[in-house]
Design a protein around this nucleic acid. Structure first.
Lengths: 126, 126
DNA sequence: GTAACTGCAAAATATTTGCATCCTT
DNA sequence: AAGGATGCAAATATTTTGCAGTTAC
């Protein structure tokens, strides 16, 4: 495993992700970094941040990849079994960390990870 | 609303989707139709099939769009609240129609549709 | 006959990669 | 100094679209 470095691009991108109230796409990030770094670097940094467990990757309902802070995760426990809520009105994709769905798989199936997205109207747009 | 026609491309594509044990991507379909129709037509037909409610569109964990038959749906009731299972071994994406997760949204949130994907090992690969 | 559909090619998007150079440690 | 990170440009991949010609009903 490579030894990650603390570069300007990384700090800026992490800041953008952490300060956004909802999950951001690579487009959002590229727009947000301005001249700090290149488009290619945005993709590379995002990939590393995910590998390092600093952010998590969410697939939106329309297939757009977005990134959100890994708030509730520490090095040993990642909790990615909560719901992602996609608002049809304001288009924000937010993590509802407190909502963890319950389900039972059929015999012989084994779950490793889950990805739950619910779309509808969020509290702000209600 | 346009009046849909029963074309060769449409019949062939629907056949491919219905006969596959797991959800198929546009790539799979383009490979499957052979010379029956063009790549652009595959996209156009898939879009129409979704609009007409004949198939449903699933976003895989890696953001790949796939299509599956709308077996349990009639014109008035679509049941898309079941789980999609993505096998890490054989890579198949299947609908587990009988598994419907339970969850409760926070106050003032309203759900319209859900998209649940679980990845792990399927019964065939267990 | 008419509107829906298709093929082809080109355009619009999105993401990845090779390589020389720069920066963090 | 060494190796990780970056910029730039080119390569890949994916999906959309304009348009003229074809087909289903």
């Amino acid at each position: 495993m490579k030894k990650p470095r603390n570069t300007i691009a990384k700090r800026k991108i992490l800041e953008l992700i952490n300060e956004s109230p909802s999950a951001v796409s690579s487009q959002d990030i590229h727009a947000g970094v301005g001249t700090v770094c290149d488009r290619a670097t945005v993709y590379r940094v995002l990939g590393r941040l995910v590998d390092e467990g600093e952010v998590h990757k969410i697939i939106d309902l329309d297939g757009v990849i977005r990134y959100a802070p890994c708030d509730q995760c520490d090095d040993h426990h990642h909790h990615h079994d909560h719901i992602h809520f996609s608002c049809e009105k304001c288009n924000a994709l937010t993590c509802l960390e407190e909502v963890v769905p319950e389900f039972t798989l059929p015999k012989n199936y084994k779950a490793h990870s889950v990805n739950f997205t619910v779309s509808g109207i969020c509290e702000k747009c209600a």
